[in-house]
Design a protein around this nucleic acid. Sequence first.
RNA 1: GCUGGGGUGGUGGAAUGGUAUACACGAAGGACUUAAGAUCCUUUGGGGAUAAAACCUCGUGCGAGUUCGACUCUCGCCCCCAGCACCA
Length: 831
Amino acid sequence: MSFDHQKIEPKWQKHWEKENLYRGINFSEKKKQYILIEFPYPSGERLHVGHGRSYCCLDAVARLRRMQGYNVLFPIGWDAFGLPAENYAIKTGIHPSITTKENITNSKKQAQSWGLSFDWEREINTTDPDYYKWTQWLFLQLYKKDLAYKKEIPVNWCPKDKTNLADEEVVAGKCERCGTPVERRMQSQWLLKITAYADRLIEDLKSVDYREDISAQQINWIGRSAGAQIKFKILDHKSEITVFTTRPDTFYGATFLVLSPEKARDYLDFVAGNKRPEVADYIEKALNKSELQRQEELKEKTGISMGFFAQNPLTGEKLPVWVADFVLSGYGTGAIMAVPAHDQRDFDFAKKYNLPLKEVVKNEKESMFPKEAFEGEGTLVNSGQFDGLQKEEAIDKITQFLEKKKMGERAVDYKLRDWVFSRQHYWGEPIPIIFCRNCWEEKSEKQKKEAREGYDFSKIDGKEHAVVTVSEEDLPVALPFVENYKPTEIGASPLAEIKKWVEVRCPICDSQARRETDTMPNWAGSSWYFLRYLDPKNDKQFADRKKLDYWLPVDWYNGGMEHTTLHLLYSRFWYKVLADLKLVPGVEPYAKRTSHGVVLGPDGQKMSKSRENVINPDEVVAEFGADTFRLYEAFMGPFEQTIAWDPKGVLGVRRFLDRVWKAHQTVSSQKSVVSSQEIQRSLHRLIKKVEEDTLHLKFNTAIAEMMKFVNQLAIGNYQLAIEDWKVFLQVLAPYAPHLAEELWHGLGERDSVHRQPWPKYDPKLIVEESVTIVVQVNGKMRGKLELPAGTREAAVTELAAGLDSVKSHFYGKRVAKTVFIPDNLINFVIL
RNA sequence: GCUGGGGUGGUGGAAUGGUAUACACGAAGGACUUAAGAUCCUUUGGGGAUAAAACCUCGUGCGAGUUCGACUCUCGCCCCCAGCACCA
């Protein structure tokens, strides 16, 4: 006996839509609950079972919360700008605006077929001009706060996608999307000063409930290290070299300095005077290496002496200056003081090139020096007046001393780089900036100097232009419709070729000016979308402040681990900027963040077309129904764990739903008025378990408990009142909304099961009347006793000691101690 | 190397100090059926013991420790997964 999901599921989906069951109500008296899933990218691949896992499980949470009386907001939208959409358009030869629209229509149909309780009235789309108008507006706020600047920098260039990539989008030297090795290029780019918020992005994690590894990964990525910058004078040269170190305590152990190839370039003239052409050769070769090459050559450090010396500002020692490719230009100052005795990399380099070592930290027990560098803690030696100090104190004292002598200062550095924000692509939000030559020329020399120093200008055809913002009333800067949206070979945006669009009047001086032709990365629209849900149709503001105050922060945000150092970090950054502008409440957007595990193919491999192991959710829904799909997504394993899709497991949950259907037929025909005690107890335990497990991400065990309950019925010979069966249907409703609704109405109910309050369990019924007491001897189970709850120790001891299986262990021994846990266990310790 | 998570039956997993293996899959046997499928029932960690049971014993990556009692806590080690990685 089975039910026809193809008949009942669409029926209820239509019904719910008509009834508008799942709206989040602004300013409702009820307690609010904002539950958010990462909005999907409407690609040609449609939604997959990975989306299903996140959406179906969080949908169960949203439904449960509604039944608990919360005013739930569970919205969805489309993150539709970006490279995949553009690549898909290029592949199919259809304009991205058309494919995007089609993909949204299809993905929406899918989401609806899963019976998800989204508030569709708040649906948004990042490519909608009414939406990206505000993305552009927000960019202007960042610009006005000096958090956006344009600078010529080396960028990660993907030769296949013909675009630059943020560091976060480069994985192991390759393009995150297409796997092509990334090249280095100098290019003028918009950057957002996320580094200015680095400390707060770390610090404020303390105030939110993120899963341990998510916070850890963000902190890791930001990579804060505290130390000092120290100046070394170059001998026979007027300049000095500033190095960054986290170990000022090893300062006396520095035996040479090393510059990054980029930094060394500044001294080429000086080196040429010393007649060392091989230095220039080395630098040039090092600079031409791609990121990937540099990474592959990791193990073997190379370098060459620059042929000049610097002076230790405290001891006056002459330190040779080298250039080496293991020193990174992008971190610290691009120059280091090498302390080979206490840094393994410096040690390896010193050994290879026969440079001197000087031990300044001693630890008799741990140090393996001079076999290898000693990086641990110990007592300072060979360090003048600082001898005898321990690490922390030494760092403090030496830094203070350097500061006093004006030879150094405390400094903090981060691995995090400013966010490269421009892309040379068509399918993105145009950056609302205009470059004006006339405005530049009208600047005073002082203003020009300031603009140059603040990277607040752009060079076009070799001439400097002033940066002028598009006025707010002219937003949005609409993305023009073009025939040719393919990226250009030279890496300029296709927009640059649309003369009519590029050439504009300057909003300040009205002279001929040029638009910025770069567009924003797809991380722009997603950095604030959760705010727009709160007021999606507002054409005066990005969102009304009162609505923001009512709904924020997001109570529960679930999404993929792959966004931890991208979207999640970016959107926290934007939110903090908005908080500083007093446009949003609080300082953190998401109170709680969780992450679902990846769904692998049935073969345990990552799903991919080439492996032919892709599970199409549409087929699962068609064959077994949305409820089965939802239930399996939740039941397949622990929510946060990577797990392989098991087609047999899908059958298993469908069997469970069939048993529910069958039980319903029996219950409704029996028409019992009272349930047996045993069934009542199970039911109340079930309410408690499902409620708790669902809110703690333990969807799999919540379902296991429901299965147990129904299995109990299947054994037969039970008595279950219709009213209690209705309670079960309410418990089932968040997970299998269609079947629950169908059966609920089958019992004559008129209103939706999803509008019912969550059943309250009776604590008295949770407690067992009779309990199983485990009898142990020396901690090993030797017997069980079925006794009324609350039986006292004396009685239990007597009964337990009387058991044959227990007595036999007492022979020749004596009971030294008895451990009694009421209603649970008794343990005889015998000697 | 650093950071975080993990290691339990044939498989996915359950149990966060108290009966190890809930729930599901698979497998074996049985009922129904001309048959297959579906469905239902029974069994299902290893070893020993028994006519059958009761029962005994080993068992949660490895080794130690704490405890009346450890999958769970502590220490050391091995392995797997994820992220970062010449970050000074």
